[in-house]
Design a protein around this nucleic acid. Structure first.
Length: 202
DNA sequence: TATGCGATATTCT
DNA sequence: GAATATCGCATAG
């Protein structure tokens, strides 16, 4: 399956500036990663929004050296290390100077399956990029990607949808101790590539 | 299928 | 010193 011609790079003007709108918009879109000798891509099937004023968001206490990428504007990568072992990929939102973003939680793998399998040490298709820490490992995303412009970078960028997007579900977010009741997690209904407890993704 | 726990590093208090 | 937007394995039902 030749997907490369089907995926068109998204321009910044196409991205909703509002965090919640961007989260919904990203479901069904593509993440593309170019590595030496191979290209990886996946379809976004699950995200979480961390808008302005959200106590669970990393920008809540203001800008610091580690979260500065969250303040770049809409369409940049904010990558950080969680629990000492897992990198998390976020797409930033809002105007420059405002700290907010969307956590990418799960991908449906499309291109570069063999490369992902090697990096993830599993050949189970459903487990390759299901979960935020897993997808960064599968896509070889780490701190080097922090701050990249996802609308301009040649190694990591946002692409168009490759097929019609299914119905979008909404739920509480996974693994939080603050703002636990906010319905800020979005996912494609019926996708087997979605993480979290099944009760959250009816 | 569901729940529980340890590993792990960086940041902020 | 505590907390953390997780994962993978273990165990029980």
């Amino acid at each position: 399956m030749k997907l490369a011609p089907l995926i068109r790079r998204l321009r910044r003007e196409e991205l909703p500036v509002d965090t919640i709108e961007l989260a919904r918009f990203l479901i069904g879109k593509s993440i593309v990663r170019r590595l030496p000798g191979c290209r990886l891509s996946g379809r976004i099937v699950e995200v979480e929004a961390y808008p302005v004023g959200d106590a669970a968001g990393h920008a809540f206490r203001g800008r610091t050296a580690s979260n500065r990428s969250l303040f770049l504007g809409t369409g940049y990568a904010y990558v950080y290390l969680s629990y000492g072992s897992s990198f998390m990929l976020n797409v930033t939102s809002e105007e420059p100077g405002v700290g907010a973003g969307v956590l990418i939680r799960s991908l449906e793998p499309m291109e570069g399956l063999r490369s992902m399998e090697r990096r993830r040490r599993t050949s189970k298709l459903f487990d390759l990029a299901r979960g935020p820490g897993r997808l960064t490992m599968a896509m070889d995303i780490d701190g080097h990607c922090d701050g990249r412009d996802l609308c301009a970078d040649t190694t990591l960028w946002l692409g168009s949808a490759v097929r019609r997007t299914g119905a979008i579900g909404r739920s509480v977010r996974v693994g939080l101790s603050k703002e636990v009741k906010r319905l800020r997690r979005f996912y494609e209904r019926g996708s087997p590539y979605v993480s979290g407890p099944r009760r959250l993704s009816p």
